[in-house]
Design a protein around this nucleic acid. Structure first.
Lengths: 222, 222
DNA sequence: CGAAAAGCTTTCCAAACTGGATCAAGATTG
DNA sequence: CAATCTTGATCCAGTTTGGAAAGCTTTTCG
């Protein structure tokens, strides 16, 4: 079952979830991420997802209750993994330099966007018209993620490292230029000769974002 | 009929296209742009398009032969209008200053992306997996549009106006940050308090893109 | 005016697909 | 071994799919 509810009910005799169940759920989640990011929520059928996962489609009902819950579980997976990779980048960066810290986050973002372009694509698909899923996504994942970064950008602006102006706008420009580049994939290769599959290109992208959005040097420490 | 072929055939007795036919076609094209950008190619049904256009669905077959041709005609409309608005911006800008010229193009881009977010959304949807429609779009519209701009960016880099680095990458960052911002609409309002509907915000976006991507001043003329 | 072409409406189709329900069989656990 | 978790195989009733067909209305143009 959808694993949201823990076994705290009155009836005893509840067993732990089996390993193969977890495997099936992960297969379904990965397939769902892929399918939803290709065809949007409406354009994706549960059968399509099950087929990609190599699993019988009624298992979706069994594990996730319905299509909507599956979508949310898939979004959870993407954004929790993403937050985890950001946290890791944040911790690995032991220097106490705001510019280096932000550069490290940008690098982590670029890499995650490459591995999981669905994150950007799904947002573009859901974003244009008002929408319950979108609201949920924003409140659950986006806002908690964005709010601290707004402040960091403001801090960098005060230090003269980032260009002046609306910090929130600046932040969104950063995330959209990187997320957009990695989501375009084939288009970039064919239209501009940029191969986002190569690790060198990935570094080049991260470096250029830092150059463009954080052009200033850190002032000498007092 | 799909209007691609002109009446130069051997048989006489061909009449000119009627006005109401053009109206129907435009209604279908606008509806198609909207629908395809919301749900992608696979996720959109011809009936959905016809309904949005307020027209009986067999008219799609009559005017565009099939769904694929309708998609291409819709893409044609979007990109031809876009090229037209760029050309206009280019001509209105009579100064011979490369930075002012690029700034003017950026402003035109931002405004068009606001009026027609489908341009960006459709690209994101089609781009990720190789795809005949994508190839067609790139060869027909993207490449002719991009190639001159690559050179202009290079020129601005040599003048020290734009940051050094891969010019094609830089160009794509510019177009994706603006296109992305305008395509996100509701998401930006809810997640970051940015209202892309307001004209002031639009100007703010264009100005910030210029600030960030064209930070240098033009050198004094010799 | 009047015939022919252009445009549109209605109806139909056969096939595929929709999300979900049912229930017996198989796998794990305690 | 028996209770429970997980899965497989079917079925369902309804909808949707892209497109074909045929007749009706409007426009064109001699």
């Amino acid at each position: 079952m959808v694993s949201a509810e823990n076994d705290q009910g009155g009836d005893r005799r509840t067993r732990k979830q089996q390993q193969r169940s977890l495997v099936t759920q992960q297969k379904l989640l990965d397939a769902a991420i892929e399918a939803f990011s290709e065809n949007g929520f409406n354009g994706t059928s549960t059968r399509d997802i099950a087929e990609r996962a190599g699993v019988h489609h009624p298992l979706i009902t069994y594990h996730f209750k319905n299509k909507d819950q599956l979508w949310r579980a898939a979004a959870d997976k993407v954004f929790l993994e993403f937050r985890h990779s950001l946290t890791k980048a944040f911790q690995d960066n032991d220097q106490n330099c705001p510019k280096a810290r932000m550069a490290s986050l940008i690098r982590a973002y670029v890499h995650y966007a490459k591995d999981q372009p669905a994150m950007h694509k799904v947002l573009v698909q859901e974003a244009h018209f008002a929408n319950e899923r979108l609201d949920w996504l924003i409140e659950t994942h986006l806002k908690p993620l964005f709010e601290p970064v707004f402040d960091w950008i403001g801090e960098l602006q005060e230090l003269g490292v980032a260009p002046a102006g609306n910090a929130k706008l600046l932040f969104n420009m950063i995330r959209l230029s990187s997320g957009g580049l990695l989501a375009l994939g084939n288009e970039l290769r064919a239209s501009s000769g940029i191969d986002v599959e190569s690790p060198e290109t990935l570094d080049e992208i991260a470096d250029m974002i830092v150059t463009v959005f954080l052009p200033g040097e850190m002032p000498a420490t007092a």
